[in-house]
């Protein structure tokens, strides 16, 4: 456990004068003799989006679970606001201003939007046995907060399960922002979404960033990460294989690094051999380029 601070700054990344919101230095996690994560270093600053990229099994989930307080790291140091910390429960992380929006367990589908929005932090009025939910205020706040994030909801009384995947993610993001999150961890928010819905979510990520939050955006899609990210941490098989400032890397390099350039080339050859639908492939690529350009507009 080192307490060195300057030495840990990654290649090309410059730390601000103030302590970063969250800082990981050589963090690792072992489950018995299985090493899920090792020597990961990254920083999350206010108003910056740090993207964590990696394929399945790269250790992305383990990483966010450590920051979110679901798991504890076994090596290295985790500093929150400059202080060394180990979270023992999600509640602790929440209290420290770190909110996590999980891909699949962000909300309770059968409950109305407003109940989900305030779940765990409900507003009440009255005292003692007559303490009751302040339903009117919660509904108003939910509506206002969502409108503030640019989410226009038909009816906050509808079960959240009736919303589209993108809308649900956005409600969860708005919830985290409302409850004073300083750091927002988004676990593959675009993984299950279509092109348009992904764009919507990416726009909210930028909105959260503009509000001064530090965002950790976990994804396996470099096309989603590149337009919104300020820094990129690449993970592979539990290790960091690169940590870049945006100015130091291009989308193509990012994609190549992630997939492992050689493997990708091989795949391209394989596909060509299979059918050689090159014109179709070009169409698909053009579509992808268009989709990633849209959220920035």
């Amino acid at each position: 456990m080192t307490t060195v601070s300057t030495q840990n700054t990654p290649t090309g990344a410059t730390t601000d004068t103030a302590a970063p919101l969250v800082e990981l230095a050589d963090v690792g996690k072992r489950y018995g003799n299985i090493i899920a994560l090792r020597e990961v270093t990254m920083t999350v600053d206010a108003g910056k989006v740090t993207c964590v990229l990696g394929d399945n099994g790269a250790g992305k989930s383990t990483l966010i679970k450590i920051i979110a307080g679901l798991h504890q790291h076994t090596d290295g140091t985790l500093r929150v606001g400059g202080e060394e910390t180990t979270f023992t429960s999600p509640r602790q992380a929440l209290d420290a201003g770190i909110a996590t929006v999980y891909q699949d367990l962000a909300v309770v589908p059968l409950m109305p939007v407003w109940r989900n929005f305030f779940l765990g932090s409900e507003l009440t009025t009255g005292f003692g046995p007559f303490k009751r939910l302040d339903v009117a205020r919660m509904k108003e706040t939910t509506k206002a907060e969502l409108a503030d994030m640019g989410i226009d909801l038909r009816d906050v009384d509808q079960p959240i399960g009736t919303l589209s995947g993108g809308e649900r993610q956005c409600v969860a993001i708005a919830r985290a922002v409302h409850f004073g999150a300083k750091v927002l961890i988004l676990d593959e928010p675009t993984a299950a979404l279509g092109v348009k819905q992904s764009g919507v979510v990416l726009r909210y990520i930028l909105q959260a960033k503009e509000r001064g939050l530090g965002v950790v955006f976990i994804t396996h899609n470099p096309h989603h990460a590149y337009p919104v990210g300020d820094r990129f941490l690449l993970l592979k098989r539990g290790r960091s294989i690169g940590y870049y400032e945006k100015k130091d890397i291009l989308l193509g390099d990012l994609t190549a690094q992630m997939a492992g350039g050689a493997e990708l080339e091989e795949l391209t050859h394989e596909l060509e051999q299979l059918g050689g639908h090159t014109s179709q492939m070009q169409q698909v690529q053009a579509g992808m380029a268009e989709s990633q350009a849209r959220p920035r507009a």
């Binding site: 999600p90 999980y102 367990l105 909300v107 309770v108 932090s121 939910l133």
Partner: peptide
């Protein structure tokens, strides 16, 4: 069930226990 925090929690732990735990219920 309908007017207290505990009621909200009851629906939540039944609806999705993991989601409820993650938001601090």
């Amino acid at each position: 069930l309908l007017k207290t925090r505990i009621g909200n929690w009851i629906f939540a732990v039944g609806g999705d226990e993991n989601a409820a735990r993650a938001v601090g219920v």
